[in-house]
Simulated scan of single mutants.
Amino acid sequence: MTSPLHGDPRPVVTVIQSSPDVPIDRFGEWLGDVELRLVAAFAGESVPIADEVGDGLVVLGGHMSAHDDATAPWLPELRALLADASVQGVPTLGICLGAQLLAAARGGRVQVAAPPGRESGVIDVRWRPEAIGDAVVGALVDLADERRATPQPSMHADAIVDLPRGAVWLASSAMYPYQAFRIGSAWGVQFHPEAGAETLRGWADGHEEVDTDAVLAAFAAREAEVTAVGRALAQSFAAHVRATAQEPVSA
């Protein structure tokens, strides 16, 4: 399944960015020896089809809702890409909005401005037994505390309220149940493993109800743990992409 380009043996991972201030951030370095192809959908770049993404796909977050097609006219193509990639065996990671788009694309339900309110700052992601040994998030369970929890940044008000049929529920938080899930060859995480302090500051400053100083203080207090978990997820996903790319293609 590998797709080397011009003799480059590195696996290719396509990254779809929907908002200019929601970048790949620290994941760019943590993914390691892969070729990243960034698609700036917010700037008018075309969303590829599943056969064009290479060996892996990452769909980042954004400020629009998962069904805000009028504001973000590329969303129908992005939902179609996520649906196709997840059934065609392309290793896929959806982050925040990316996770919501994945859920919606596969028949789940996303609620805009969900009643619990905005989940912001550093949250405890609690891993379910189903996450133990998982090809991608199993590495995060290995870093969890005695409650099987790991700290991660969060910034969202919309939420997945029903998982798609056939999805495996992997993690929850105190405010929102569906913090991570797997369906087909795709994983969705509601939290932001890629986000560093400056990215988080920009998001917090954009919401009047969010105390930026409190968010940054919580991040600083747990930065070593947050970073270790985010890096582990990126490295585990990249390893899964490489392993999948090396699998022989069946006739």
Rank of each mutant, 00 (worst) to 15 (best):
A180V: 07
A214F: 12
Q100C: 08
T92C: 14
A251E: 10
V12Y: 01
Q152V: 06
V141D: 08
R148P: 13
W187E: 12
R79H: 10
A167V: 10
G133W: 01
V249H: 11
D25P: 04
T150R: 02
G184L: 04
G196V: 11
V189A: 05
P153M: 05
V12S: 07
A139E: 07
D162K: 09
V110C: 12
A220Y: 03
A251C: 09
A167N: 10
I95Q: 01
V112T: 15
A50K: 01
P48I: 02
A50L: 00
P48T: 00
A66F: 01
V122C: 09
H192V: 11
G184T: 05
R147N: 02
D205Q: 09
D124Y: 08
E77F: 14
P73W: 06
V112N: 15
H207F: 12
M1S: 07
L78A: 15
A99R: 04
I49V: 06
Y178L: 03
L38T: 04
L233Q: 02
Q246T: 09
R242G: 03
D51R: 04
L140M: 14
P177T: 11
L57V: 06
V241A: 04
P91T: 03
Y178D: 02
G32M: 02
G230M: 06
L233W: 01
A238Q: 12
R37N: 00
E119N: 13
T2F: 00
V249L: 15
V189W: 06
V226A: 04
I95N: 00
A171I: 01
P9W: 05
P4S: 10
G206A: 15
D213Q: 15
A243D: 09
